[in-house]
Design a protein around this nucleic acid. Structure first.
Length: 212
DNA sequence: AAAACGGGGGC
DNA sequence: GCCCCAGTTTT
């Protein structure tokens, strides 16, 4: 009986690496910084988020100061990003929750992270992999879309994609896959018109040259 | 399963 | 001006 030949994950990741030149260590930071920065980054562009995160850290450098921050003041500092009111409320509540329930530390388990406001699986997995260097795959819309286009998974939601990917993708690629596919998704494998003619992954892709 | 949240960047 | 976003929560 024919056992299906698994996709060639390593050549794909190598092609992505060549196209996008990710410098992994730049994203490594303390679990707390990853947590706050990732909440702020939801549905907003990186460049904007980076500036806003620096401003937040300058004004409220640690958990204790952020826990005591005034919501209107935080809202004013992060006003240039989307969902600023919810995010201001969320990061203050997160800081308070860390102090009251976790001795001021960021928890390192998925279940505990999911208890924090505005922390879903994608954000929690960012904290685990970038903050704690634990094996986890943050799946956003880019990872979801590209994994399906490649034929690695056949899933309807990012959550389903995450659960499928952790079963098939070798662990050596988990740390890189999010940033590589996000970069790829913004510049080459875009939602509407993927530029397959310029894509070095196309030879390995189930839908190269085919629209969704 | 779908709506709501939102300012900023690209065209 | 209009369309599109590195999600999560609520209905």
């Amino acid at each position: 009986m024919g056992v299906a030949v698994p996709p060639e994950y390593t050549p794909v990741m190598e092609a992505l690496r060549q196209m996008h030149g990710v410098t992994m260590l730049e994203r490594r930071s303390s679990p707390y910084d990853v947590l706050i920065a990732t909440i702020l980054s939801q549905r907003t562009r990186d460049e904007t988020t980076e500036r806003v995160f620096r401003d937040v850290k300058a004004r409220w450098p640690d958990v204790t100061s952020l826990a005591a921050a005034d919501e209107d003041e935080v809202d004013a500092v992060i006003h240039s990003i989307g969902f600023h009111r919810q995010k201001a409320r969320a990061i203050i509540a997160t800081a308070k929750q860390l102090e009251e329930q976790h001795d001021g530390q960021v928890p390192s388990s998925m279940d505990e992270l999911l208890e924090l406001p505005m922390v879903g699986r994608k954000t929690a997995n960012c904290v685990l992999v970038y903050g704690f260097a634990e094996p986890a795959i943050p799946v956003d819309t880019h990872v979801h879309r590209i994994s399906n286009r490649l034929g690695w998974v056949e899933t309807r939601t990012p959550e389903d994609t995450e659960r499928a990917l952790v079963k098939v993708l070798p662990r050596e690629h988990w740390l890189e896959i999010n940033q590589l596919m996000v970069s790829h998704g913004k510049t080459v494998c875009q939602p509407q018109r993927p530029r397959c003619g310029r894509c070095r992954v196309a030879p390995h892709c189930a839908r190269a040259g085919v629209a969704d």
